[in-house]
Every structure is written in C-alpha cells, then in structure tokens.
Amino acid sequence: MTTASKVKCPKCVKNAAAITCEGCSSKLCRGCYNDHRQQLSKELDQFVYEHDMLKQQLETPNENEPHHLLKQIDEWKKDSINKINQLADQCQADVNQLLDKNKDQLINKFRKITNEARKGQKDDDYDERDLKMWMTQLKELKDELIKQSNICIAVDKQQSAWIKRIKVQEASPQQGNAEDSK
C-alpha cells in the first residue's frame, strides 16, 4: 500500500498544509493559518486607525493653520497693497509739491499786484482803469487758487502690469507637483 505524500506548510515546514487562504491562495497548517489571520487582523487594525485619522482631518476644520494656497493669496494681497500704498504716498507727495509750487507762484503774483496798488495809492497815481485791472488780476488769482487747473492725475498706459493679476484654477497632477517645487 502506497501512502500519498502530504503537502507541507510552506511557513513552518513541519505540519501538513490543511487550510487554503482564499486571499493569497497559500496552503497552511492550522497554527500558521491562525498566525496568518492574526497578522491580517493587525493590518486591518492599522487600516482602521489610518482611516479614522484621515476622517478626523477631513471632518475637523483646521482653523489654526490656513491652507497654503490661502497663505499664498494673502502674501500676494499684502505685496500688492504695499505697492499701491508706496505709489499713493509718492503721488500724494508729488501733489503736495506741485500745490506748494503753485501757491508760491500765486503769492508772487499777489505781491506784485499788492506792490503796484500800494505804489499807486502812495503816489496818488491811479484811476478807474488801474482799479479795474487790479480787481481783474485779484479775481484771476482767486480763481487760480480755487481751480489749481494745472494739476491732474493720469493713468500711465506705458507701464506694464505693475501688480500681477492672479487667478485660481484647477491644476492637473503634473502642474500641482511642478508648482509645489517652485
């Protein structure tokens, strides 16, 4: 009588392989099969732990740390506002300088009219024509003081985009990785 040779368990190589694992198709003995199931149970526990951690991250709003894209937009905003503030400060200084220059010119014209009128009064050398001319000159000075017509604000059309415009768009996986590396 011939005995059929039994397939040995590939893990312990002692016992006969009696149980087949449906997942990996290994034929194992009862002890090694139990160890194998215990290892699978540990891996499932690890999966559940990682799953729960990810779930917590997805469900919990992270108010302490804003998303890096929001930080990037805030940086752009601050940079743009700083540039605008610098330009506005420079333009205000330029306007003040021009206003002072105009005021000095008006003061000089005013002094000239004052000197002519006082000289005419002192010398008693004036008539209706002189009074009319001085009144006209005085009215013109008032109008110039109110109007300041030689100052205006113009848009520099030769200037390239001083503040870069940004936009938000979905990126392909390759674009996202390329942007992260910059």
Rank of each mutant, 00 (worst) to 15 (best):
T20W: 05
Q175L: 06
D124A: 03
D180R: 12
T3K: 15
H36C: 02
P10R: 09
S26N: 08
E144G: 03
A16L: 06
P66Q: 13
I107S: 12
Q72K: 15
Q86E: 11
V7Q: 04
D94S: 10
K132I: 00
L99H: 03
N64K: 11
D79L: 12
T136M: 02
L40E: 09
Q72D: 11
E63S: 15
E116N: 00
S25D: 03
C152A: 15
A18H: 15
Y33G: 03
C152F: 10
F47H: 04
L141P: 00
A93Y: 00
M1T: 08
W76S: 10
K132E: 06
E116Q: 01
Q39D: 12
L106F: 01
G120C: 00
K132F: 00
L69K: 05
Q56E: 08
E43M: 11
K83T: 10
L69G: 05
H67G: 05
N150H: 13
C29E: 02
K8D: 08
V155Q: 15
C12R: 11
K78M: 06
M1A: 13
L99F: 13
L138D: 00
L70T: 08
W134Q: 02
M53N: 11
Q97I: 13
Y126P: 03
K77E: 11
K142P: 02
D127C: 04
G31L: 14
